[in-house]
């Protein structure tokens, strides 16, 4: 297993809060339905007619991230480039529209050129085609947590020697208007470019920082009912996995991004029991908002902090974000 840490050298965002990761005001509500994304200016005049919104956002965010990372991608042979993307509702609107066609006019009236996108992994597959990402391509879909899990799975694949350059992030598109989660829809995409610290140093790349992710599970049936003695240990262990031993006494602040649920309540109380100052922020419908918080957190120097999320189904994830350069010299990773 490789020990060299991955560092973030590129950040790309397109979102209703704007496309500058440093200027995302994520605490104010934003309307996923607003006409906030301009296909022609972001992507070009043609070639995207049949590409659904969740894929357009991912293409745009990836281009922005790679521009930010300089020549990172062109230095790495195609079979050594990997990409992991989290999405929960990236094609939900498309599936809904297709299903309406199938159940009324019938399958013959589906658009053939759009048909491949019924499969959620084609969003990242399309991006792979554009940038020669031939190492591998992963699509993760766990509700709320898949964006953080993409960072985790991608970093693990790097550690296992499966790539030398990693793109990881999340994309989401608005839920159909008749869906109960529509008004809280996540929309947009965020992509990080990660590479080994030594490679970034060798090419003189500007660093945004590092992030480390752990996932765990708090069963919803136990979450609010009888005490689950192991659950606190589970959360503590997840925190320990993303926090180097020398940082244990720092107690980084936590931003927990989740909709109210017994799982979120339990996680919040656990984090506070463990001595962590924890803010609770409402999640959107999707996996994007936690990744936007990470992207934003990496744009400015500041102390390490943790972005956490909890899905009502029990899936929990947290990412420790270390912006570069660290404000406290004792945090220097040497």
């Amino acid at each position: 297993m490789r020990a060299d840490t991955l560092v973030v050298t590129g950040i790309g965002v397109v979102s209703p809060w704007g496309n500058d990761p440093a200027k995302l005001d994520l605490r104010t509500p934003a309307d996923a339905d607003e006409d906030w994304f301009d296909v022609v200016s972001e992507l070009g005049p043609r070639g995207y007619k049949y590409v659904p919104p969740g894929c357009r956002y991912l293409i745009a965010a990836t281009r922005r991230a790679l521009r930010d990372a300089g020549d990172a991608v062109t230095r790495i042979p195609e079979p050594r480039r990997g990409m992991a993307v989290g999405t929960e509702n990236g094609i939900a609107g498309l599936i809904d529209a297709m299903d309406e066609t199938v159940t009324t006019a019938g399958a013959d009236r589906l658009s053939p050129a759009t048909a491949p996108y019924f499969s959620v992994n084609t969003l990242a597959g399309r991006v792979a085609m554009e940038h020669g990402i031939k190492g591998w391509n992963l699509t993760l879909t766990s509700p709320r947590a898949a964006g953080l899990q993409a960072l985790q799975a991608g970093s693990r694949a790097y550690a296992a020697g499966r790539c030398d350059l990693l793109l990881a992030g999340s994309t989401e598109a608005a839920l159909p208007s008749h869906h109960s989660g529509h008004s809280a829809s996540d929309a947009g995409a965020a992509v990080l470019v990660l590479e080994p610290r030594a490679a970034a140093a060798a090419r003189g790349a500007a660093l945004h920082g590092t992030c480390a992710t752990a996932t765990f599970f708090l069963a919803p049936l136990l979450a609010s009912g009888t005490p689950a003695p192991d659950a606190l240990r589970t959360t503590a262990e997840a925190l320990a996995r993303v926090t180097p031993a020398r940082h244990r006494n720092i107690h980084p602040p936590v931003r927990l991004i989740a909709e109210p649920s017994p799982v979120a309540t339990r996680l919040l109380s656990q984090l506070r029991t463990l001595g962590l100052r924890t803010d609770f922020l409402p999640a959107g419908s999707g996996t994007l908002l936690p990744v936007l918080h990470i992207a934003h957190g990496l744009t400015a120097p500041g102390p390490p902090h943790i972005v956490a999320t909890a899905s009502p189904d029990g899936t929990c994830a947290l990412t420790a974000v270390h912006p570069q350069p660290p404000t406290d010299p004792t945090l220097e990773t040497r």
Partner: peptide, 8 residues
């Protein structure tokens, strides 16, 4: 308690 990952 160790995590759930859905791969698609």
């Amino acid at each position: 308690g160790a995590g759930a990952t859905c791969v698609s």
